[in-house]
Amino acid sequence: MFKKNAVAAGMAAFASVALAAGCAVADGSKDSAVDITAMSADELAEHLIFETDSFRDQEMQEGGSWRDRMTQDELQKACSMEGDPDGETAGRVVAMARAGYERPEGGVELGDWRKGAELANSGFGYRQGHNTDDHGQREQGGNCYNCHVFDPRVSEQGTIGPSLQNYGANRGTSEAVLNYVHEVISNPHQYFPCTEMPRFNSDRHQLLSDEQISHLMAYLLDPESPVNNQ
């Protein structure tokens, strides 16, 4: 389902790029047919992104074109406000996130915490532009350490998200905990609508494989993991 959609979207986007290239000038705002003052701020922002040749035409690691990546889905649109969402928006985002979630067949399992530690402390993957990450050369990481403290002995870790030190030690490894953590890593908007945290496996795309997510879960929950021995 996911891949088919991505390919179809990519082809549709390619067609529209080819069309746009016919009439676009290198510098979009020189196009005198366009009156930017007649647009709403939202319309102008979309115009600037998609119609002014501002982005490199590259293949995205998750499949599709730059247009696919820059096109907002409903959840991204709903969360593009300053500050916290209002109650109605929060409810809608949670519902969207839940509707798109699928638990793995056979249930949630913990992988290898050592591999999870490497993934949590890797910022590689999905970057595009002047220096594009080649996933064929190196496995993509989870970027977790940019925002969460897991184990201060490893390296300096970020504080945009909550500290996860002793996360598993405080919660155990019951089925309910495993299911919850899998849901949060896959699509955290199920519990934290409009959170800053990325969706690592959602109906938009799968940034980390099921196996990689199982390793990250082990890093968080395995009693042997250094996260739980502090």
């Binding site: 705002s29 982005f55 995205m60």
Partner: peptide, 10 residues
């Protein structure tokens, strides 16, 4: 996001 080009209105 996608790779941004210089001299562009974004």
């Amino acid at each position: 996001h996608a790779g941004i080009k210089h001299d562009t209105p974004v």
